[in-house]
Design a protein around this nucleic acid. Structure first.
Lengths: 121, 121
DNA sequence: CAAACCTTGACACAGGCGTGGTAAGGTTTG
DNA sequence: CAAACCTTACCACGCCTGTGTCAAGGTTTG
């Protein structure tokens, strides 16, 4: 059979079985299932689990942050709205004229893309 | 005097004074201070506060998400690490060859900028 | 100088997150 | 068929977030 069961995966990834189920439910690492519903962890998932641990350890981020980052890339409207808000830093209104133009440019590009896509919301 | 005091700002933005202090401490909306330490909210901050409320209401995001979004744009290394992890979706390893190229493009640009700026971290 | 502001700091509390444990029940396999 | 797995569904617990309230003290201004 291809892939490890949840306890085997837990052993080789240093995650607890409990956490593997949690990560599954949160959508971050969702392995295939057998007909009976058993989780099957393939090499891809195992690698993903190990790098996930490293991500969380080295960078100071939370599991939920990853979920938000995923939303950010999957919902361009959301991304545009947030980028726009962050761009409007009121403090330091001096001429940043040469530092944040590229950001402005990207934002405009986002908006143009969004307009093309037809705002369905 | 230019700008509103915290209670006045609270009235016109529908935030509580308590929350204005919280937003200040979290770095999302940090107004100027008088010599005595009084917060002074200018038109920029007021607008920012109103749009912030709308952001939180219409999109389903949290205040802390904004902080993370800010980190994402200010720490290209972090951004790259997370994008990389998210890119390695083990399920459906088909060629996404035509959907996320613009993301990749922007990311590369960030990296180029970082390189130019000289990685001081 | 006193009233009406402002400041920071603390306590409180609900809800969510990350995590462990356990119980009740299905599946696989010797 | 029984042991050893797996499943979901709960209870629990500590910590963080968002929010209110209150206290002790500085500032502004009539």
């Amino acid at each position: 059979m291809e892939g490890l069961t949840i306890n085997q995966a837990a052993e080789t990834t240093a995650w607890s079985p409990r956490m593997l189920r949690y990560l599954d439910s949160s959508g971050l690492v969702a392995p295939q299932r057998t007909a009976a519903g058993y989780r099957i962890y393939g090499p891809g998932e195992l690698q993903r689990l190990r790098t996930l641990r490293e991500l969380l350890d080295t960078r100071a981020i939370e599991i939920s942050d990853l979920g938000f980052a995923r939303r950010l890339r999957e919902e361009p409207e959301l991304r545009v709205a947030i980028e726009g808000w962050l761009d409007a830093e009121p403090t330091a209104p001096e001429g940043v004229s040469e530092g944040s133009d590229w950001l402005r440019f990207e934002q405009d590009k986002h908006e143009r893309l969004l307009a093309l896509a037809g705002g369905n919301r």
